[in-house]
Design a protein around this nucleic acid. Structure first.
Length: 257
DNA sequence: ATGGTCGACCCTCGA
């Protein structure tokens, strides 16, 4: 079972890329972020033609998330974080076969010290408390998404810039990610790969992709129960080379079954 | 050089 996460930065623009990548990579489950589409405009029929069932939780202009599952039923769908009021559509969870999938579009946070940064930390705290409960109910859990946090210095192109005081790498953000992992989750990429400089996001500005100036902020986390089944993982850079690309590349984990 | 490029939308904001 191949499970992936991709921030498409507008599904309206990127639907052809998603279709192409689904054909190329043949993932079984995909969590998509930044669809930027109201639910009425979600292209579920196009994805159904490729064999994918979908659930989606979207809004106009900003945010928006979805889960795609190839040839599999999607059950027990949860939109948003329970008991956490949020007008921003950033979370969808569902059960596919016997695996619970939580798809997150984590708050960006703009800059350390801003109101958006405070919202990011509050939001991560609510996610933490919810996932603690989800793990009790669903030991076979995958948490994936655009985390907008680079876990450590290997995950940034320039650690002097992306330091303890910088957005996406600040001490409090990384601590929030570590608290999530401490619940019994594992960064699947790091189960199979310890090298530095493998990234999932490159800014559109400064020709960052061509110059290798990226960050690894798109993660797939597997629970203790699934860790022994995680046989491979990676980041597929190729869609970032296509014409008019998303600024993110898909990250994936393969579960043996 | 406090920018750069996108996407959505209406002119500027969010990333």
């Amino acid at each position: 079972m191949k499970i992936a996460s991709w921030n498409v930065n507008s599904l309206n623009v990127r639907l052809p890329h998603l279709e192409q990548w689904l054909r190329d990579a043949a993932p079984d489950v995909v969590g998509v972020q930044e669809t930027k589409l109201e639910d009425a405009r979600f292209p579920d029929a196009v994805l159904a033609a490729l064999g994918y069932r979908t659930v989606f939780h979207g809004q106009k202009t900003y945010n928006g998330v979805a889960i795609l599952a190839h040839d599999r039923m999607i059950a027990d769908v949860q939109m948003g974080i329970p008991d956490f009021h949020d007008d921003q559509k950033r979370v969808v969870a569902a059960t596919v076969d016997d695996v619970r999938i939580i798809n997150l579009y984590v708050v960006n946070g703009q800059d350390v010290g801003t109101e958006k940064y405070a919202y990011k930390l509050r939001w991560l705290e609510a996610v933490h408390d919810w996932i603690a409960r989800e793990l009790q109910a669903h030991p076979k859990l995958v948490v994936l998404g655009d985390f907008n946090i680079a876990p450590d210095a290997r995950d940034v192109h320039d650690p002097a810039v992306w330091n303890d005081d910088h957005i996406l790498t600040s001490t409090a953000e990384r601590a929030a990610l570590q608290r999530l992992l401490a619940l019994g989750l594992h960064d699947a990429f790091r189960l199979h790969n310890d090298e530095a400089g493998v990234f999932s996001w490159w800014d559109y500005r400064q020709a960052a992709f061509r110059r290798g100036m990226g960050l690894r902020i798109d993660l797939t986390l597997v629970s203790d129960a699934l860790k022994p089944l995680a046989v491979a993982s990676g980041i597929d850079r190729e869609p970032r080379t296509w014409e008019r690309p998303s600024d993110h590349a898909p990250a994936w984990v393969q579960l043996a079954r």
